[in-house]
Write a protein that binds this DNA or RNA. Structure first.
Lengths: 191, 191
DNA sequence: GTCTATAGAGAGATAGAC
DNA sequence: GTCTATCTCTCTATAGAC
């Protein structure tokens, strides 16, 4: 049910997705959805909460290890790329949320806070981080670059490749992208 | 009229945008829109055609100059960043189109062709390009990185910055991003 | 060109049986 | 839990006056 919603909301957007289609994919009728979620918006919220929760858990795992700081950051970037590569619906959902005017994304706002807190706790607040000689770059800019190029690649690129082969993106391309992201982060963080 | 459509389609998406709102912004009534565009989809197509046409013209200007190849490529990247920075609605529209499942973006398909042809003609087909010692990287990947990180930054970042200041993105941040994109392109193209 | 008025379709939400 | 049936609303599209 959340699976069906995740896929359809991602591919069509909230407004264009019909509850009928979600129900059909699950194998029940539209009215039966109400038994689980009182309305469309709450179903969407549940989809968003689940996928972002999963991502959050994965990133926390990478960031909270015992390894030194640069290795932990790189592990988080790798985890991110791998996670999105395996779950392209997240890429599409983030693209759509990013496209919406800021005042039109109340659902996402709650979650972004959790991610900034995560980075704050495991990176920015750490004494090792303060000792790093950083390039004079806004960390939000770094995050935006990594997130933006990854989601765009995962969502848009398969269709642009010759041969008509779509999802999922090839392993080689994903690995190349991961390398590229690591390079960007290393340079921006100045180590 | 195209201005109003561009902004609203960008911020809300095609489905969620009401013709009523577009008409209101123009200062006429909904039914009067029909005099110019027979239906909603054609208005959207016209919006897309205009903004992508403008971008195409700007990029062609940058790519068709007499300068040597690396300089022309860099000019195109700079033109791209500057163009999107001044027209954030394009960023949002591209984000939405990228998010849509491939088979659900007939409108964009026509235009992407024009851009790949542009690159083909002014870059890939040039003998100078063939002589370059390139990193073994897919040019589509390069384009995806530049486009994706820029549109995401322009659309999403203003809201993430402290102070509640939204659009447009500050000049300093845009300039920093442009530098970053140039660096990525230079490295990926191997010069 | 722009309007008012209305038709018509589609979709979410609700009621209540089984 | 899942269904059928229906209500209600919103929005696009159309007709036709000015």
């Amino acid at each position: 049910m959340l699976d069906a919603g995740e896929e359809l909301f991602a591919e069509r957007g909230f407004e264009a997705t019909r509850l009928e289609d979600i129900a059909l994919r699950v194998g029940i009728r539209r009215a039966s959805l109400v038994y689980y979620y009182p309305d469309k918006r709450r179903l969407y919220d549940a989809v968003l909460a689940r996928v972002l929760g999963d991502l959050h858990a994965r990133l926390e795992e990478a960031l909270a290890s015992e390894a030194p700081l640069p290795a932990r950051i790189e592990a988080a970037v790798s985890a991110w790329v791998e996670f999105v590569g395996r779950r392209p619906a997240l890429a599409r959902i983030l693209l759509r949320e990013a496209a919406a005017a800021p005042q039109r994304r109340p659902a996402l706002a709650v979650h972004t806070q959790a991610f900034t807190a995560l980075v704050q706790r495991h990176v920015l607040d750490r004494p090792e981080f303060r000792r790093e000689r950083l390039a004079p770059i806004d960390p939000v800019h770094v995050a935006s670059t990594v997130v933006g190029s990854t989601v765009f690649l995962v969502a848009a690129m398969p269709a642009l490749l010759p041969g008509g082969r779509h999802e999922p993106l090839g392993k080689a391309q994903l690995a190349a992208h991961e390398e590229e992201m690591l390079r960007v982060v290393r340079r921006l963080l100045g180590y």
